[in-house]
C-alpha cells in the first residue's frame, strides 16, 4: 500500500539525511518506527505524507504520490504529532470542526475512544493538561479511519494508567485496511503492540522484521555471565542481558530496547543473522 523507493533527502545546506531509502508498508499492521535522536524519524514521516519534498526517489500511497497533496489522499492520512496545537474549544466542537474533512469519520468510535481515555467531550481543550489533550487528539485521530495514521511519540506525556488506556484503545482501533505508524522512543510502552519493528539509522532502514521473525531468531538471555554466542550484550542488574541466537525454537519475550541497541551497534551481525535464516 505504501511504497518508498530510493528516497534521498537533505535539508538545505546540511548533509544528506536519507540516501536511497527503501520502505514498504502494508495495511493491517502497526509499525513501530524506532531511531536515535536526529535519525530522521519525523522527517521520514513528513516525506511519507508529502509535507516535505524529497530530493530523489519515489513514494506512492495506493499508487498516488503524496507530494501532489491531493485532497482525496489527504483525507486518508492523519499525522498526530508529538505536540499538536489546539484551538480554544471543547473536544466535541473540535470534532464538529474537523470531522467533516474526513468522510469516514466514525462518531461511535470517537465516543468509544473518549470513554476508553476517560475524557469528557464537553471539556475545553485549552484547559486540559498536556496528557488529556493528547488523549483527545489520539481519539480523534483513531476515529478518522484514515488508511494511514501516523502517531509521533503518542505516549509522551501520558501517565501510567493513560498508557495502558492508549494500548487498549489502539489495539481496538487497528484493522486490516489501515497502516498505523508509531514513531517512538518509549518502546516499553508499546512493546506488545507494535509489529513489525522498524529501525532507522544512518539514513537507512537497517532493521524491519515482525515480532515472530525476531523471536524465532533471537532469544533473550539474562544471567551473571556474558554468553559467548551473544549477538549483543550489555550489563544489567545481576550480570548481563543479551540477545542470543534462538537455536532451540523456544519462545521468549524480546526486550525492544536491547533489540534496538543490538540493531544499531551490531548492524552487520544482525543483518547476517536474519538474512541467513531467511535463506
Amino acid at each position: 500500500m505504501i511504497d518508498v523507493r530510493s528516497v534521498s533527502f537533505a535539508y538545505r545546506k546540511k548533509p544528506p539525511l536519507f540516501d536511497s531509502l527503501d520502505w514498504n508498508l502494508e495495511p493491517g499492521t502497526i509499525y513501530g518506527l524506532l531511531g536515535r535522536n536526529g535519525a530522521g524519524k519525523t522527517t521520514l514521516l513528513k516525506l511519507l505524507t508529502g509535507m516535505l519534498y524529497r530530493n530523489a526517489g519515489s513514494i506512492a500511497i495506493d499508487g498516488i504520490d503524496p507530494e501532489r497533496r491531493l485532497p482525496e489522499l489527504q483525507q486518508e492520512m492523519l499525522f498526530v504529532s508529538e505536540e499538536l496545537p489546539v484551538p480554544p474549544m471543547s473536544i466535541s466542537a473540535y470534532r464538529d470542526l474537523y470531522a467533516p474533512l474526513y468522510p469516514r469519520f466514525d462518531d461511535a468510535g470517537f465516543t468509544r475512544y473518549l470513554e476508553g481515555f476517560e475524557t469528557d467531550p464537553a471539556e475545553s481543550m485549552k484547559k486540559m493538561s498536556f496528557g488529556q489533550r493528547k488523549k483527545a487528539l489520539l481519539a480523534f485521530g483513531l476515529a478518522t479511519c484514515t488508511k494511514l495514521l501516523i502517531l509521533d511519540e503518542p505516549t509522551n506525556g501520558l501517565d501510567i494508567p493513560s498508557k495502558g488506556q492508549f494500548r487498549r484503545v489502539l489495539a481496538g482501533a487497528a484493522d486490516d485496511s489501515r497502516v498505523i505508524v508509531v514513531s517512538t522512543h518509549q518502546v516499553r510502552d508499546l512493546e506488545r503492540l507494535i509489529d513489525p519493528i522498524t529501525i532507522l539509522e544512518a539514513g537507512r532502514i537497517i532493521f524491519q522484521h515482525s515480532v515472530d521473525e525476531i523471536t524465532s531468531r533471537l532469544r533473550l538471555h539474562v544471567g551473571p555471565d556474558r554468553p559467548e554466542d551473544a549477538v549483543y550484550a550489555e550489563q544489567a542488574m545481576g550480570g548481563f542481558a543479551a540477545l542470543v541466537p534462538n537455536t532451540d525454537a523456544s519462545t521468549s519475550r524480546i526486550d525492544l530496547e536491547l533489540l534496538f541497541n543490538a540493531a544499531t551497534v551490531e548492524t552487520d551481525r544482525m543483518s547476517a543473522l536474519f538474512a541467513k535464516e531467511a535463506s
Binding site: 513528513k46 509535507m51 485532497p71 492523519l78 499525522f79 504529532s81 496545537p85
Partner: peptide, 21 residues
C-alpha cells in the same frame, strides 16, 4: 501566520484540501 510555526504549519498543510481550496 501558522506556516511560521512548524507544528501548526504541519497541522494546517495536512488538512484535506488542495492548495487552491
Amino acid at each position: 501566520s501558522e506556516l511560521q510555526d512548524e507544528k501548526r504549519g504541519l497541522h494546517y498543510l495536512m488538512l484535506p484540501g488542495s492548495a487552491v481550496e
